[in-house]
Amino acid sequence: MQNNLLAEFGRRLRELRQERNGTQKSMAAYLGCTVSNYQKMEYGQVNVPALTLIALSEYFHVSIDYLLGRSELR
C-alpha cells in the first residue's frame, strides 16, 4: 500500500509541476531541498515530511488528500 501511495503522490506532483511549466530545480529551490531529493519525491522513492506536504498543497492550491491520491477533488 505504501508504495502505491508514494507512486500516486509522485505522479500527481509531477503533473502539477508540469501544468505550471515548473522545473524540478525550481521546485527543489522552493522546498529548500536538493534536486536529487525532489526527484525522489516525484519518483515515489521517499516519504515526504508533513511540512513539505503542506508547502506543496499551498503552492499548488490543492488538498493534501489530492496530493496523496486519496481524493479526486483538487
Rank of each mutant, 00 (worst) to 15 (best):
M1F: 01
Q2E: 01
Q2T: 04
N3L: 08
N4P: 00
N4Y: 07
N4C: 02
N4K: 05
L5M: 06
L5E: 08
L5P: 00
L5T: 05
L6S: 01
L6C: 01
L6N: 02
A7I: 01
A7N: 08
A7W: 00
A7E: 07
G10Y: 04
G10W: 03
G10T: 02
R11F: 01
R12W: 00
R12I: 01
L13Q: 01
L13R: 00
R14G: 00
R14P: 00
E15L: 10
E15G: 07
L16M: 06
L16H: 06
L16K: 07
R17Y: 09
Q18C: 03
Q18S: 08
Q18M: 10
R20P: 01
R20L: 06
R20A: 04
R20F: 06
G22P: 00
K25I: 09
S26W: 11
S26L: 13
S26D: 14
M27V: 12
A28F: 14
A28D: 13
Y30A: 12
Y30Q: 07
G32C: 10
G32S: 13
G32K: 11
C33I: 15
T34M: 12
V35K: 14
V35Q: 15
S36E: 15
S36Y: 14
S36K: 14
S36D: 15
S36I: 11
N37E: 15
N37P: 01
Y38V: 11
Y38I: 11
Y38Q: 15
Q39K: 13
Q39H: 12
Q39S: 15
Q39I: 13
K40I: 04
M41R: 06
M41K: 10
M41W: 09
E42S: 09
E42A: 08
Y43F: 14
G44I: 11
G44D: 08
Q45A: 13
V46A: 06
V48E: 03
V48A: 07
V48L: 09
P49E: 11
P49A: 11
P49M: 07
A50W: 10
A50C: 12
A50G: 06
T52P: 03
T52E: 09
L53R: 04
A55H: 12
A55K: 15
L56K: 06
L56A: 05
L56S: 06
L56P: 05
S57L: 08
S57R: 05
S57T: 05
E58L: 12
Y59I: 00
Y59L: 04
Y59Q: 05
Y59S: 00
Y59F: 12
F60E: 02
H61V: 04
H61I: 05
V62L: 02
V62I: 06
V62D: 08
S63G: 14
I64A: 08
I64F: 03
D65L: 03
D65Q: 06
L67H: 03
L67K: 06
L68S: 02
G69F: 02
G69C: 06
R70D: 03
S71V: 08
S71I: 07
S71T: 12
E72Q: 10
E72V: 09
L73N: 14
